[in-house]
Deep mutational scan, measured.
Amino acid sequence: GPMASDKRPRTAFTAEQLQRLKAEFQTNRYLTEQRRQSLAQELGLNESQIKIWFQNKRAK
């Protein structure tokens, strides 16, 4: 629909990254900035991508 703007492409996470994020989520529903930074480095992701993933996951 018209609401779907092309400005922010959805990140396609790899299965491996998703597995890691899910495991982290089961341990911590809320990430500290430090955890998020190390996860971002570990997974080669953007911190904001991880932050948003957690927000979306909590919203469900």
Rank of each mutant, 00 (worst) to 15 (best):
G1I: 12
G1N: 11
G1W: 07
G1S: 07
G1T: 07
G1Y: 14
P2D: 11
P2N: 14
P2G: 12
P2E: 13
P2Q: 13
P2R: 01
P2K: 03
P2T: 11
M3F: 04
M3G: 11
M3T: 14
A4S: 09
A4Y: 11
A4C: 12
A4H: 14
S5L: 03
S5H: 08
S5N: 10
S5T: 09
S5R: 01
D6W: 01
D6H: 05
D6C: 11
D6S: 09
D6Q: 06
K7G: 13
K7L: 07
K7S: 10
R8V: 10
R8M: 05
R8Q: 06
R8T: 11
R8L: 11
P9K: 10
P9L: 04
P9R: 03
P9S: 03
P9I: 03
P9H: 05
P9Y: 04
R10D: 15
R10Y: 15
R10I: 15
R10C: 15
R10K: 15
R10G: 15
R10N: 15
T11G: 14
T11Y: 15
T11H: 15
T11C: 11
T11A: 11
T11E: 15
T11I: 11
T11S: 14
T11D: 15
T11V: 13
A12H: 15
A12T: 12
A12L: 12
A12G: 07
A12W: 15
A12Q: 15
F13E: 01
F13C: 03
F13I: 06
F13G: 01
F13K: 02
F13W: 15
F13D: 01
F13S: 02
T14Q: 03
T14D: 04
T14R: 03
T14W: 02
A15S: 11
A15W: 10
A15L: 10
A15Y: 12
A15M: 12
E16V: 12
E16M: 11
E16K: 14
E16Q: 13
Q17A: 05
Q17L: 04
Q17I: 07
L18V: 10
L18N: 08
L18F: 06
L18I: 10
L18W: 05
Q19H: 08
Q19P: 01
Q19C: 07
Q19K: 11
Q19S: 13
Q19N: 13
Q19D: 10
Q19F: 11
Q19E: 05
Q19G: 09
Q19M: 15
Q19A: 14
Q19R: 09
R20I: 08
R20G: 05
R20P: 00
R20S: 04
R20E: 02
R20C: 05
R20Q: 06
L21K: 00
L21Q: 00
L21D: 00
K22E: 07
K22Q: 08
K22S: 06
K22G: 05
K22D: 04
K22A: 09
K22H: 10
A23H: 09
A23G: 06
A23W: 06
A23Y: 11
A23T: 12
E24V: 06
E24Y: 02
E24W: 02
E24Q: 02
F25R: 02
F25N: 00
F25W: 05
F25T: 01
F25I: 02
Q26W: 04
Q26G: 05
Q26D: 08
T27V: 14
T27A: 12
T27D: 07
T27I: 14
T27M: 14
N28H: 09
N28Y: 04
N28F: 04
N28W: 04
N28E: 06
N28R: 05
N28I: 03
N28A: 05
N28K: 05
R29K: 10
R29M: 08
R29C: 07
R29T: 05
R29G: 04
R29D: 05
R29P: 10
R29N: 14
R29Q: 06
R29A: 11
Y30R: 05
Y30K: 08
Y30C: 06
Y30L: 06
Y30P: 03
Y30D: 05
Y30F: 09
Y30H: 05
Y30S: 06
Y30M: 07
L31K: 01
L31M: 08
L31V: 07
L31A: 04
L31E: 08
T32L: 03
T32E: 04
T32H: 05
T32P: 04
T32C: 07
T32S: 11
T32I: 03
T32F: 02
T32R: 04
T32D: 12
E33A: 15
E33K: 12
E33H: 14
E33V: 11
E33D: 13
E33L: 15
E33S: 13
Q34N: 09
Q34F: 09
Q34D: 11
Q34H: 13
Q34S: 15
Q34R: 09
Q34P: 06
R35I: 05
R35F: 03
R35K: 14
R35D: 05
R35V: 07
R35H: 08
R35W: 04
R36S: 08
R36H: 04
R36V: 10
Q37K: 12
Q37F: 10
Q37R: 14
Q37Y: 14
Q37C: 08
Q37N: 08
Q37H: 10
S38A: 12
S38V: 15
S38R: 07
S38M: 14
S38K: 11
S38I: 13
S38F: 11
S38G: 10
L39N: 00
L39V: 03
L39P: 00
L39G: 00
A40V: 04
A40L: 02
A40H: 02
A40E: 03
A40Q: 03
A40R: 02
A40Y: 01
Q41T: 09
Q41R: 11
Q41W: 09
Q41F: 09
Q41H: 12
Q41Y: 09
Q41D: 12
Q41N: 13
Q41G: 07
E42R: 03
E42C: 04
L43M: 06
L43W: 03
L43E: 00
L43P: 00
L43Y: 02
L43K: 00
G44T: 04
G44E: 05
G44Y: 04
G44R: 07
G44P: 00
G44V: 04
G44W: 03
G44H: 09
G44I: 03
G44F: 05
G44K: 13
G44M: 07
L45Q: 02
L45E: 01
L45F: 02
L45S: 03
L45R: 02
N46E: 15
N46V: 09
N46M: 09
N46Y: 13
N46K: 15
E47Y: 03
E47N: 04
E47A: 10
E47I: 09
E47L: 04
E47P: 09
E47S: 08
E47F: 03
E47G: 07
E47T: 14
S48I: 15
S48T: 13
S48V: 12
S48A: 11
S48W: 14
Q49V: 14
Q49D: 13
Q49Y: 12
Q49M: 10
Q49R: 14
Q49W: 07
Q49C: 12
I50P: 00
I50M: 02
I50A: 01
I50N: 00
I50K: 01
I50G: 00
I50Q: 00
K51C: 08
K51V: 11
K51Y: 09
K51G: 07
I52F: 05
I52K: 15
I52H: 14
I52C: 06
I52S: 06
I52N: 13
I52L: 11
W53T: 00
W53E: 00
W53V: 02
W53I: 02
W53R: 00
W53H: 01
W53A: 02
W53L: 03
F54W: 12
F54G: 01
F54C: 01
F54D: 00
F54I: 02
Q55Y: 14
Q55S: 14
Q55G: 07
Q55H: 13
Q55C: 08
Q55L: 11
Q55I: 11
Q55N: 07
N56L: 14
N56R: 15
N56P: 02
N56T: 12
N56H: 15
K57C: 06
K57N: 08
K57G: 05
K57I: 05
K57T: 08
K57L: 06
K57F: 05
K57A: 14
R58T: 08
R58C: 06
R58M: 07
R58L: 10
R58K: 05
R58P: 02
R58Q: 06
A59H: 14
A59C: 11
A59V: 06
A59W: 14
A59K: 15
A59Y: 06
A59G: 07
A59S: 07
K60I: 08
K60Y: 06
K60A: 13
K60D: 04
K60F: 03
K60E: 05
K60S: 09
K60H: 11
